[in-house]
Amino acid sequence: MALHTIENTTGAPTIVRSPAGPPKKSARTHAAQRWRRKAGRVILYVALIAGAVVMLFPFFWMISSSLKTFQEVNLSPPTMLPSDPQWSNYAEAWEGPPSGFGRYFLNSLIVAVLGTALQLVTGITAAYAFARMKFRFNNLLFMVVLATMMIPFEARIVPNYVLIRQIPLAGGNDLFGDGGSGLYDTYAGMILPGVAGAFAIFLLRQAFMAVPRDYWDAIRMDGASHWTFLWRVLVPMTMPAVLTVVLFGFIGRWNELLWPLIATQSEAIRPVQLGLMAFSGDEGSLYHLLMAATTLVAIPGIIFFLFVQRRFVEGLTAFGVKG
């Protein structure tokens, strides 16, 4: 296994390669530099805003379509903006699916929050073991964990379903997993298969490994345990990585579609993405309502992102640590 060579080595944070030597400066180059910096700024803004417009266009399109009538949304060439905004589409979409969207939102929230929390805790401890503990087969086991990312989703569906239904002592099952429906059609059944995430472990391991060993040596002197070091020092220091895991964990859960569809049957516990399916089927789609509902469903993700990206920076400065 090739992994041992990229394990953490000790040493203080330093610049890895020294840059090219300093050029000589004069007053003239100074003014030219200032002008160049200003021009650079303008170009930067233009580029960033142009990029943002490209990125946002489909989102704009989605909102625009969500306010059209059924007739207008099927017009082609399409109208850029709705000729007469149909705000009632949102009310109709909210009421559209069998249980009403309120229930779906609650279900998704339960699944996303619990699922993300469990993934974070198991991911952090596993990543810590991989990044900071010496034991045999460390690299091999890590490779195995990584390999689970490579398993095609289609290969997992049926075995996971069978397992969920045969969990002993759940849903009327006996000790051997027979007789009842196990965790089928429950929140737990929806959540469990996605808890252990190789991506989260990989990301956190990389982040933990990048923290200099000096911190550990220092706290070790004070007699602190691995547990304390992990939660008091390492996690705060790698907040951006931790938040990234939370962000992607949450969004991944929120957007889950196929597994909840297979693992549930009653509308009362199904998540938002299944609610969206009420507007599009094999016999055609109600695009205007689909777009209204999709917009509503995207909002929590966006709010969550805004929250996280602010914490990205704050989390670091609050602890006064810089990698």
Binding site: Y161, V162, R165, Q166, S181, Y184, L258
Partner: peptide, 14 residues
């Protein structure tokens, strides 16, 4: 998706 759900249920019950 229906097909997938039916197959899974034929293997695992339900």
């Amino acid at each position: 998706e229906l097909n997938q759900a039916v197959r899974a249920s034929l293997a695992g019950g339900g």
